[in-house]
């Protein structure tokens, strides 16, 4: 890639510890429609907050409560008739609320899914609609979304009330280019990052709505997605994924990358490339980063997990029962990995 990259030793596939991922549970969704996403959330059941799993098929979102011995029971289902579900939008710090993005190729609606105060029936509330480009749930019961393009682009923060309805809305200054993704800055609740179509990273002050800086990153990889960021010693460290990265003869396939940016000067450089082990092929399809662990579904149908501190891939999960993996999420309620297949099977792994 570039001379700025730290050289790393990539372990071979057969040296990875196959015991790193341990299957603890499996959920079978019998709805029959295509499975699109999974997430974990807290839900109050019989007076206790419980770590639940949310599964999304094209037209049904279901909430599963834990039973004994890693079994799960479906307790609520929300149905959609016109527009299919694209993704679950996990909102940290909320209980009894799930957000979903609906649309065909692009997001057309964001809805909050709740249940009635007596817990007997499901409810849904339309939060926003239009040509929505990107959405992310943020700490302190907030949700950020961008809609429109270029001159009419709107970036909005919505804060939820206890009952899940939208309590207040605030606009952020839009950059003059389309936003692709958002990412929080760990430990800085008033800072928000966005990646744009022009390969820039923008940073906002969420308290004032100011657009603080536009920082251009290396053009080696197009359409990079920002997953996580943290600030240390005056520098901003950002974990990106590279869906369009080509295989590099020396390093293999770069799936994630850690870059460092000086927000004062907007100068940046690559710190680490996270590549596939030798003998493994595939590009980034879909993935999730939590703390210092990154997981990705590859175009080969395999899931790969990296320890971002160690710098190399620590686990590979080949397709199970002949079915490729189609999505992967870290559970927000514990240290489990949730892996899903298109036919509705969800597997829970302890990492």
């Amino acid at each position: 890639h570039s001379a700025e990259q730290t050289e790393i030793e990539v372990p071979a596939w057969d040296s990875l510890n196959p015991g790193t991922l341990q299957l603890v549970s499996k959920l079978k969704n019998p709805s029959g429609s295509c499975s699109v996403d999974v997430s974990a959330t807290w839900w109050e059941i019989a007076g206790f907050k419980q770590p639940c799993i949310v599964t999304a098929c094209e037209y049904v979102v279901s909430l599963w409560k834990p039973l004994d011995a890693w079994q799960w029971e479906k307790i609520y289902s929300w149905h959609f008739t016109e527009v299919p579900v694209l993704q679950i939008v996990a909102v940290p710090d909320v209980c009894n609320l799930v957000c979903v993005a609906l649309g065909n190729l692009e997001i057309r609606e964001i809805r909050a899914l709740l249940c009635s105060p007596d817990g007997k029936s499901e409810k849904q509330v339309l939060l926003s609609s239009g040509n929505i480009k990107a959405v992310l749930g943020l700490a302190k019961r907030r949700l950020v979304s961008s809609s429109g393009t270029l001159c009419d682009q709107q970036v909005e923060i919505m804060t939820f009330a206890e009952d899940g309805g939208s309590k207040e809305k605030q606009l952020l200054m839009p950059p003059e280019e389309t936003i692709l993704t958002f990412a929080e800055v760990q430990g800085m609740q008033e800072a928000l990052l966005g990646t744009t179509i022009m390969n820039n990273i923008v940073i906002w002050n969420l308290k004032t709505g100011q657009l603080l800086k536009k920082m251009h990153i290396d053009d080696s990889y197009q359409a990079s997605v920002c997953h996580k960021a943290y600030s240390e010693m005056g520098l901003l460290f950002v974990v990106l994924s590279h869906p369009c990265a080509k295989e590099n003869e020396l390093l293999g396939s770069p799936v994630f990358q850690l870059i460092v940016i000086n927000p004062k000067t907007a100068l940046s450089m690559g710190v680490m490339l996270y590549c596939l082990p030798h003998g493994q092929a595939g590009r980034f399809l879909e993935g999730d980063v939590k703390d210092h662990f990154a997981a990705a579904v590859l175009t080969s149908g395999t899931i790969a997990v990296w320890d971002l501190l160690l710098g190399h891939c620590t686990a590979l999960l080949p397709p199970v029962s002949g079915q490729n993996w189609s999505f992967v999420k870290w559970s927000g309620t514990d240290s489990h990995l949730l892996a899903g297949q298109k036919d509705g099977n969800i597997f829970v792994y302890r990492y």
Binding site: N205, L211, L235
Partner: peptide, 23 residues
């Protein structure tokens, strides 16, 4: 990588950028 290539670093970058950026 070499930190010097990134230019002068400020520990208070967020506050400084907030005071410099248009409201």
């Amino acid at each position: 990588c070499n930190k010097a290539d990134l230019g002068p670093i400020s520990l208070n970058w967020f506050e400084e950028l907030s005071s410099e950026a248009p409201p």
